[in-house]
Design a protein around this nucleic acid. Structure first.
Lengths: 263, 263
DNA sequence: CAGTGGTCTAGACCACGAT
DNA sequence: TCGTGGTCTAGACCACTGG
């Protein structure tokens, strides 16, 4: 028996009741209208968490669209994390929970992209020759030199983040590139021009500000902040840019929403 | 002139050179094979960051598939964050940078789902009648009571997280549900059965452990940890479950990868 | 074995961008 | 105006789930 069919008093399968029709003359695509309707149905409890949605073929017929269009509508909800597709079984409404959350760093990107209001101050630039973990990460020998650069990046004249970076000191590359590694990290921090990096790994951690860091960021010593560690690889797969950003959670809020929010 | 065409010595447009052909007898879908090929091309620098990919129609012709299939292949790369589609213009390779990163809480979900190895110990359960921010968040009057419950959730007998929760004290709901709010938070913490929540908002922050918290989690006092704040709404749109998890970043690493990693 | 989601075709037309 | 991505159709067949 079709699980999504509704039975009349006499037990005969009735057609799927459609909450709202598609306006094909609208500029809004049919799949988007359909996704809105389905989302609304979920929101109103018609399809509670765990429930199975009608089959895509049934939805297509009910809304008078092709199967591909109905599929696209369901895909919208799937990408929103609202439903889960199981091949051969059906499409199910996801349960809302903490684990579904996802935190993006658009806020950071937005600020770093607002270059007109950014000020970058280099507070340290040195060649380090003593061993350290950064050399392991960059695949260097303990005695090979690395360039360490520390920058305070301010936004609208307020300190926003402290960036510590380690890059390999490659005597064969042009001096302008290696000396203060401005080119490499311009590509990392600002998303302009051609990036030199093929891929990167990031780790987000909580951290405390020591006295010096706190002074540079004009925050209290011992304040909890985000530490965003990064390791970027160039197109030769060599680890190239290791370092981290220290940034207050108030200046970079990490927010996430789960479930249905559009009403 | 087609921007993606390559010119021969005599200046005549040559067909797009295909790196590898699609094996239509393979069990791997054509779009997935095509996505792999394109990803590999990007990885090897054939399409550097900022470059425009060949038009979807050109790709379809070059690989001998329909336009919809080529489109699906490009969609894979788009969902991976590798390319950006611009209507009317083209599809461009994204530059790799810190802002592209995205942190999911699958690690948290994985541990909370492993119920056989979980122990939950309630370390506090009380009805609070004095005012507090939690009442504003839950939309209660300052004198309305809330239930506060604190739990230590251990995994394999090691403290994993401390959960503080505030829920409204609703005398009309069944006692079993409201008393220790076990049902509500069973749905929140464990993703089993039918969820009572329609949606939730979450905020991730860095925090320090005070002496009591540190003792409960067997961590040093003052250690930096993640604070994952949550506010969940029921299907009547009432804020219902406010609280937060304190969890060590070592037990819940937040990792993210950007760019091309599959080689 | 019936029903479900997953893939695929060979077209069509539209909205938008750059020219 | 032309090339691009975006939407859509009306079919087809396949892979998988579950009774």
């Amino acid at each position: 028996m079709k699980a999504d069919s509704k039975k009349g008093p006499n037990g005969v399968s009735a057609p799927l009741v459609v909450a709202k029709a598609i306006d094909k003359s609208s500029r809004m695509p049919a799949y988007a209208q359909m996704a809105d309707i389905l989302r609304s149905s979920i929101s109103q409890g018609e399809y509670p968490p765990g429930a199975r949605l009608p089959a895509e073929s049934a939805l297509a017929k009910a809304y008078g669209v092709s199967a591909m269009t109905a599929r696209q509508a369901v895909s919208v909800l799937e990408e929103e994390g609202l439903v889960r597709r199981v091949q051969g079984s059906g499409t199910y409404v996801r349960k809302v929970g903490v684990a579904a959350s996802n935190f993006g760093l658009e806020a950071l990107g937005g600020i770093l992209a607002d270059r007109d209001n950014l000020q970058v101050r280099i507070v340290k630039a040195a060649v380090k020759k003593t061993p350290g973990v950064e050399k392991e990460v960059l695949g260097l020998k303990p005695n090979e030199p690395v360039i360490v650069v520390e920058r305070v990046i301010s936004h609208r004249n307020e300190p926003f983040t402290l960036h510590i970076s380690y890059t390999s000191f490659d005597p064969t590359s042009p001096t302008v590139e290696s000396m203060l590694d401005t080119v490499v990290l311009t590509g990392l921090i600002f998303q302009e021009g051609y990036s030199k990096f093929k891929r990167g790994a990031l780790r987000l951690m909580p951290a405390l500000l020591d006295a010096r860091e706190a002074g540079l960021l004009k925050l209290p010593e011992g304040a909890p902040v985000f530490k965003l560690e990064h390791l970027f690889y160039d197109f030769d797969n060599r680890p190239t840019a290791f370092g981290w950003f220290l940034v207050s959670h108030e200046k970079m809020p990490l927010l996430s929403k789960v479930g249905v929010w559009d009403e």
